[in-house]
Design a protein around this nucleic acid. Structure first.
Lengths: 135, 135, 135, 135
DNA sequence: GTGGTCTAGACCACA
DNA sequence: GTGGTCTAGACCACA
């Protein structure tokens, strides 16, 4: 599965965060299903060309968010929850709400926000987008 | 005007960024108008309970974003630009679009996003919101 | 003569430097001739809406450059030198040479420089220009 | 590469600006190429006999000018832009134009300017030159 | 007084 | 180790 993941080592976005996002995405897409095993920290790090501490950190945070779980001596797996995808999507929605609240507090009109949403969903976003993703 | 600003010194969000946001907000709200003077670096720092260098950094970044300008020996002022508020609002909209794009990429539906926007504008937001506000 | 001088109090360019430039310009234009009296520091400062120290500093530097001279108890006058204008022009040429040298060291071609000079002399400069002027 | 850089700690030109110029020059000369790593902030500061904050400031300004970029935990690198050198050269040309404009406003003739340019390019410059070099 | 630069050094997140 | 933030405080030019 590591072949499905490409990190941008030049980005300012922390690598461990990129990794978290990528794994979440794979869950969302159904590429990773509850119970599936994740690569071992060390070999994964080697394959990604990244520091083991970095993979470790990504795994730890994902575990804290109940998206994956580890069994000492056996490995790391995708959580057995049928609401995993919903849970991840809800995180994204919360982020949107935070951004909208800030905009609202800056007197941006609801109409302007709605049209911005329309633009994104009609694919007219020239923004690189990337940034943030979960936490 | 310094009494209008409250910083969260414990937040992991950099103090100078919080300060930038607060000042931007005051401009947006019309509390600060083009030509208005900002507090002197040192006295402002004292009032905020912060190091002068931190205020300095906030001022310098706002200056290179053309939101304020400084003149040695005289002081710091809000830029004389009639498009200041629009400019700041557009920054907020861009943030929203980034967040929406990420949500979209996580298969969040447009309907869900729109309803999230509705929630925020009807005042039902329990999100801490606060964070971010400028580049 | 103070009515001929307009300072930009908002500019980042130091006021005393602006004042020096303006006086030099007036000499160059023949508005001020050798032997002419300059306004007294205090009244001049008042007229310009500027701190007396600032006018003082401009006068001191101009005196150091032999462009003006002061007689204690009498006042300040334009130097009685017939080469004053040439001298001022030569200062400007030196500045150009410094800038050209830096450009040359950055591998800018002579052709590019010449064409830049042409542009300025044909009036196609969209640069605000202003900055620097003597010292 | 740090051995290629000599700062004048006594100059009134800010150290961080000198450093910015020197780095820009090295890029211009091809000594530093896109993707190349710059010395770490702290070790560079030690080698230059300067405070880390000063190097930091130079790096951060070069970063916002898109000349270099930093990644926390990894290091600082020359930007991957093929137009970097052109961009820097254009900055120098702008400086020349500003100086020429001022000279022109002081009634310096075009002929005089051209001959000054000739002098510089034929190596007859006794001007200290050094100073300035970036934004 | 006002902004700008700089040192000395601590602490943090990330790799 | 690497960059980013912050404090404490000095010194400078300018007004």
């Amino acid at each position: 599965m590591d072949t499905l993941i490409k990190l941008d080592l030049l980005s300012r976005r922390p690598i461990y965060e990129q990794l978290k996002s990528k794994i979440s995405e794979l869950v969302l897409l159904g590429e990773l299903k509850p119970g599936d095993a994740l690569p071992a920290v060390r070999s994964f790090a080697r394959d990604l060309g990244v520091n083991p501490n970095t993979v470790q950190k990504a795994y730890q945070e994902l575990e804290r968010e109940n998206i994956i779980y580890s069994v000492v001596g056996r490995g790391t797996y995708i959580s057995r929850s049928d609401k995993l995808a919903d849970q991840l999507r809800e995180q994204q929605v919360q982020r949107v709400k935070s951004a909208v609240l800030l905009a609202k507090n800056s007197s941006v009109t609801k109409e302007r926000i709605i049209s911005a949403v329309d633009e994104v969903f009609s694919g007219k976003n020239h923004a690189e987008g990337e940034s943030q993703a979960d936490d």
